[in-house]
Design a protein around this nucleic acid. Sequence first.
DNA 1: GATGAATGAGTGTTCATTCAT
DNA 2: CATGAATGAACACTCATTCAT
Lengths: 197, 197, 197, 197
Amino acid sequence: MIIYFRSMRTKDDIKQDALFEATVKLVNEIGFAASSVSKIAKEAGISPATIYIYHKNKEDLLVSTYIEIKRNMGKSVQENFDDSLPIRDIIRNIWVKIFSYVSNHPAYFQYAEQFSNSPYNSLVNKQEIEGYFAPMIQVILKGVEQKIIKNVNFDILTAFIFYPIMALSNPRICQNFEMSDENIETAFTLAWDAIKF
Amino acid sequence: MIIYFRSMRTKDDIKQDALFEATVKLVNEIGFAASSVSKIAKEAGISPATIYIYHKNKEDLLVSTYIEIKRNMGKSVQENFDDSLPIRDIIRNIWVKIFSYVSNHPAYFQYAEQFSNSPYNSLVNKQEIEGYFAPMIQVILKGVEQKIIKNVNFDILTAFIFYPIMALSNPRICQNFEMSDENIETAFTLAWDAIKF
Amino acid sequence: MIIYFRSMRTKDDIKQDALFEATVKLVNEIGFAASSVSKIAKEAGISPATIYIYHKNKEDLLVSTYIEIKRNMGKSVQENFDDSLPIRDIIRNIWVKIFSYVSNHPAYFQYAEQFSNSPYNSLVNKQEIEGYFAPMIQVILKGVEQKIIKNVNFDILTAFIFYPIMALSNPRICQNFEMSDENIETAFTLAWDAIKF
Amino acid sequence: MIIYFRSMRTKDDIKQDALFEATVKLVNEIGFAASSVSKIAKEAGISPATIYIYHKNKEDLLVSTYIEIKRNMGKSVQENFDDSLPIRDIIRNIWVKIFSYVSNHPAYFQYAEQFSNSPYNSLVNKQEIEGYFAPMIQVILKGVEQKIIKNVNFDILTAFIFYPIMALSNPRICQNFEMSDENIETAFTLAWDAIKF
DNA sequence: GATGAATGAGTGTTCATTCAT
DNA sequence: CATGAATGAACACTCATTCAT
């Protein structure tokens, strides 16, 4: 029987992590177009050739990095998910969690925004991404069923609950104020007013 | 005596227009990173060297194209602006106009989205852009004053009125349904519910 | 009968002069390789196309500029030439004049040095250049005849009389001291000691 | 067991040598300005991109080539240096060695001349170059101390001993005659007459 | 005579990727 | 597994030169 302690991470893992962080960091610092394989390699402290051991090509590196971010985010949002609460509270919990994830990982978020607005985005399997957010979807649908949430197209609902988060947590858009706990609460009120029956 | 009709556009204008359209088209088709100067030139039917007569460098070409799009959009949104209507109607008019502009010029919109998520975005004068949207800002502030709109931070308001439009009109995000007039009306209802007092 | 006053120089002349000075200045500032036609034109305050009215091509511009410098220098050196003096004094006069010309027109000299060490140099008619320095040659030959100067190959003589001037007046080589009148006199003593019988 | 003989030069060395020779050859053939990176690469039989493995940029390639030539020359001149001889003989030995080096490596010399008259020259560390010629400097200073050589500024002395070599060995300047051993001896006599007390 | 617009050919440099070690 | 060396292809950009006006 083999027991892996936290400290027993293989060298591979360490390199892969360094590569992930280097990719995110560089794309955020100098942008998508200027982030070349060799610059990423240098940032990660490895050889450009090594990247091709872990990834088929540059595209694969970028897509993998995006998916990894989305997985992280999905996992983080679903922590301590309690569906015994009233629907408004469940959504509020999720909402705040997304907000805090995005605020605490601005680099990940910014990478994801750049990525999803680039043509690389068409290469990812949408369903895999959506999978990470399945519980939220379920709650909303339940709210509609129970006539707590407006009975309108699902995409319209998400556009008003979740999409404003992107704007509010984007320092590029909201340069003028910080999102205090109070502001977050206020913002959720608007989101809920938009979708509630 | 020589009379120049409007139709006697100089060669300059024709080339400049071709360049603008080629830039937008190519960035939408193959993305920001892959849109090289020579590819843009070929698309526009001119020599790469000619681009440097009209623009100092690639950056200038991309930034100019973005600003031009924003100016177009601002102009288009402010057409037939009638501020004698009730505030809800004024905002509804603006809202629908933005929506229809974005829907009718998906290429321009997509370019603007890619651009504003790239590091080039930091190069534009934010105030110039905001200028194009000044009337809208005034209406919202008036609504707040008259206690028709919630008295919360301005950025929060816009995140809930305007930002969802970006999501709803983005074919990448809303792949599953088309925005009919009815859907647009429904969506505005949500926007209004979010911000109204 | 037409009388040209100094002030009556035609526009052409003014442009040609500006072009000459711009060429020299730019080549000295940024070097031969980096001095493009358009940069020279901008420096001269004219259009690149205008250069092609006065010169067949870039090569012709550079060669003409060199020849003009050499003509200037030859003319300047021969001013107040008095061949009734003793040979040593004649040569001393010439020597000092060359030195002072080179010191007073470092830009011209530097251009000439760069030019004569470039492959463009093979394009100039050597005899035309030598013509400007004929009187000096005559004096030296007379000195040899009169057994005042060593009877050795002419090129060896000039290598020791005139070539050191290039070194001494080149600020690149002589960075450590300025050529005072006294130093000039000292230097000529060495030159004369080298060639005198 | 693998034994590496001296003759087993690594690929590196071969390429680097080819690059050095190609740079010198091309600059001599078509001049400094026209010697582009791609032409040099083609002459050396390597890819332009490969040059950037060995050199940071074009400038670095040209400067390195110059320094290498100067190092070669310095080394060659100091071979069999015997400072037990009378000062005149030591200087004569050095003088002849410089002359023969320059005559036997006209390409290296011509490159150095072009280089030192170009703006690139300001990029080299003068002290490094001077280091290669330290012994000569010492001898001259000793000669001055012993009142064998004129007590004048050092730069003036070198201008008359060494600079004429540049002229005499430059086929561009001395087209009319070859430097026989006798001529070399004669020329050194002039150099010595110039500087001797 | 003078020029701004235009461009094909070329510049120096970096790219994503491969491969022998 | 990991890499430094290598490169063809592409990059952003400038060149010398022409030509219609």
